[in-house]
Amino acid sequence: MSKIKLIDIAHGRSGDKGDAANVGIIAYNDDGYEIIKKHLTVENVKKHFEGICLGEVERFEMPNIRALNFLLHNTLGGGGTVSLKHDAQGKTLAAALLRMEIEI
């Protein structure tokens, strides 16, 4: 078993959809895609965002660009101008997911 950092094998982008954040994670190569597909499960992502994502996590696969898209519901403090968060649009949440370390 060895530990890898997600940020070494993937990049991504995040944004807002109302009070949900969308977090897209893109692997740099096919091996990386296999790793994120296996380890970035709904459960693992929900656990990673504990205290940030207060709702459900939805996951969508995009093998054509080696990517996974996550919708994190109830995450942005109400979203838009309702939110008191500094990052009310979840723009830094892709980076937040890339903090994850994975044991392979």
């Binding site: 807002d16 959809k17 969508f60 990517a67 898209n69």
Partner: peptide
């Protein structure tokens, strides 16, 4: 491909 891929992911829900 990387810069375009990132934009494809921006603010999307169900990609299909």
């Amino acid at each position: 491909v990387d810069t375009v891929s990132e934009q494809l992911m921006y603010e999307i829900g169900d990609p299909t």
